[in-house]
Design a protein around this nucleic acid. Structure first.
Lengths: 165, 165
DNA sequence: GGGGATCTTGACAAGAACTGTCGGGATTTG
DNA sequence: CAAATCCCGACAGTTCTTGTCAAGATCCCC
């Protein structure tokens, strides 16, 4: 199990917004912050980490802002979480010192058996889901008239996919 | 996804040690702390939470200490994490405010689809694993001569299951 | 059986380290 | 020069850790 804080959530939301607007001119951090209800200064720090991990690109000056560094289908949620949280070392391990030493190698090992099972399960979901997957879900969610999500601010970004293009 | 810190790890390790020694006289916090390399004072606080959640029992005075409140097969890892961490609210949700409002009800909803999928997967593992399961794994791990775990302090507790009885 | 001495948990609180938040600049672009 | 981003540091809040003291339980000695 990996360390997960609000940073992951914020980073994920910002990145998803960027994915919804992929191909458009760069978006300033202020716009991303307002649309997702995230403190601007805090989001800047997070975007900075994403930039250092080369997941997003930043351009300065008027008309500048952030954009995805590559295709949404080639950025996973795990990439974002890892870039934002830093170490991403497992925290719910019965024996972290064992794992740190690389001591537990056996398949039947207790540490492997339980703690790493959880970690692997998480990793599979995190690394198996791309921003493109999330975008597709968000758009589908928007189509479903019974889903109250569609009134939310963040999903309005999907409009540009229909109209702006 | 739930909040997981070192507290969960510490609590889990202490509880597992207790499970390995289930049926024996109570173990002092100092012994649990030393055997698991956990700061004693800090572990006492954690054990206190486990006691308030009625997962362990505490007795004072000479010969006193902690013991499991019920059978290891009837205590899950989820019980421990919940007792130790407190709220256990999800943290990696793209839209926590949606979830807080209970707004996302649709099956196809983005929030449900991804964030809650992760949460449910975790919960299933956490609540589906008991201390007895972990003990069985630890003992099996000890049998496997290729597993370097068996030299570790915590597994030596399994000795008492063979010899002391 | 009474009085300590000893061993244990329990509660409070203080200090270090990290997280989340914010502002003031420095730097780059147009 | 103006607009926009980045970098540095300050601040509260929380978590992690340790310390101090009080309270309960057992044992021993008289």
């Amino acid at each position: 199990m990996m360390k997960l804080s609000t940073r992951s959530s914020y980073g994920l939301r910002a990145a998803l917004t960027l994915a919804l607007h992929h191909g458009e001119p760069p978006r300033p951090a202020a716009v991303l912050a307002e649309g997702n209800q995230i403190p601007r200064r805090y989001l800047e720090q997070i975007l900075n980490r994403l930039r250092r991990a080369e997941l997003v690109t930043a351009s300065r000056g008027p008309g500048g802002g952030y954009g995805l560094a590559r295709d949404p289908g080639r950025i996973t949620v795990g990439d974002i979480v890892r870039a934002v949280e830093g170490d991403l070392e497992p925290v719910l391990c019965a024996f972290p010192e064992l794992k740190a030493q690389g001591v537990c190698a056996g398949e039947k090992c207790f540490c492997q058996g339980f703690c790493q099972e959880m970690e692997r399960t998480l990793t599979r979901i995190l690394d198996g889901t791309t921003l493109a997957d999330l975008r597709a879900r968000a758009l589908k969610c928007r189509e479903d008239s019974t889903c109250t999500c569609q009134g939310m601010e963040i999903l309005s970004g999907a409009d540009s996919l229909d109209s702006a293009h």
